[in-house]
Design a protein around this nucleic acid. Structure first.
Lengths: 163, 163
DNA sequence: CGTCATTCAGTTGTGCACAATTCAGTTGTG
DNA sequence: CACAACTGAATTGTGCACAACTGAATGACG
């Protein structure tokens, strides 16, 4: 595949598609930011709280697996949640390497106030529930494919010239 | 609308949907990161270059409008592109407030090597062109709705209790 | 003509994402 | 038991997103 086989059109299309994903992500982020300001949470902090509300106490590692975030992102984020009084972090007794994240009473209580967030987000999207679910499914399929491609870096490196 | 009207299910669904968007965005980012390493570009830098390749020289302001990014993000990013020798920044003669971003020869030449990126991305997604276009359209519609909602913060603040 | 609001780029500060590294704790193997 | 390999969290450094602010240049209006 030579470069001349890929017209500028493709670059233009790429701009539209990759831009629309990052724009959508930032737009979502910005709407969540407004709604979450009341709760004193950022969007990633909200995601962490959702995981904890759903599963109760979890090791940092497990939180990271649910959200695909590593310790480099989670450690400072969890410290901020702890400083805000929403969680406690405690070294696990059975494995001293592991740190368990517990909800405080305040953290548990915040769930009540968070209940109204999703509906307001849905209202802001103007999408029907079905449509959101459909989008959700597509995005997950996309993510799975991209992850597979990223994991197999070598294959990705060669797609351009080794069929 | 009371909180008891919003069952925990909605929080669970919200987790799935908002998580899948941020996950998709990060997965895309990570695949682009691999492909763009060759070109010495990050993903946002690539977006800026796409805009410049398409439109030629532009004031910083215009670049920001194309990508919905503000000067706080663009100023340091453009400095890095300048340090890499891909663009020059020059105060506009006719309006000294404005800074025009020009492609250098090197920046223009990079376009050739960028041509192959979109196809490799598409291969990584495993999506057909039509499907990507469809996703693109949905995401844009979503972004437009979210932007409208965010812009009208007051309305958003009230959706929960003031019909 | 001078003042004042606006516009544009840049800076500062906070928070997130991620790669790379560090370090303590754990586990497997000889 | 000893030692190597691994694991989990934290730290460091780079870059992006965005809010809030600064400061210079412009333009409008009295």
């Amino acid at each position: 595949m030579t470069t001349s086989g890929a017209p500028a059109d493709l670059l233009h299309l790429d701009k539209q598609i990759c831009f629309s994903l990052s724009a959508a992500s930032r737009a979502f982020n910005s709407v969540y930011r407004v709604l979450l300001k009341d709760l004193g949470l950022t969007y990633p902090q909200y995601l962490v709280m959702l995981v904890l509300w759903e599963h109760g106490e979890l090791p940092v590692k497990a939180v990271g697996e649910h959200l695909r975030l590593d310790s480099g992102t989670l450690s400072p984020l969890l410290k901020r949640l702890e400083a805000a009084g929403l969680v406690r972090r405690e070294r696990s007794a059975r494995d001293e390497r592991s740190v368990e994240v517990h909800l405080t009473e305040e953290g548990t209580a915040l769930r009540e106030r968070a209940q109204r967030v999703p509906q307001r987000i849905m209202a802001a999207t103007g999408f029907e529930l079905d449509e959101l679910r459909d989008l959700h499914a597509r995005l997950d399929r996309l993510t799975a494919a991209l992850d597979a491609a990223a994991r197999d870096t070598a294959a990705l490196e060669e797609t351009a010239d080794c069929p």
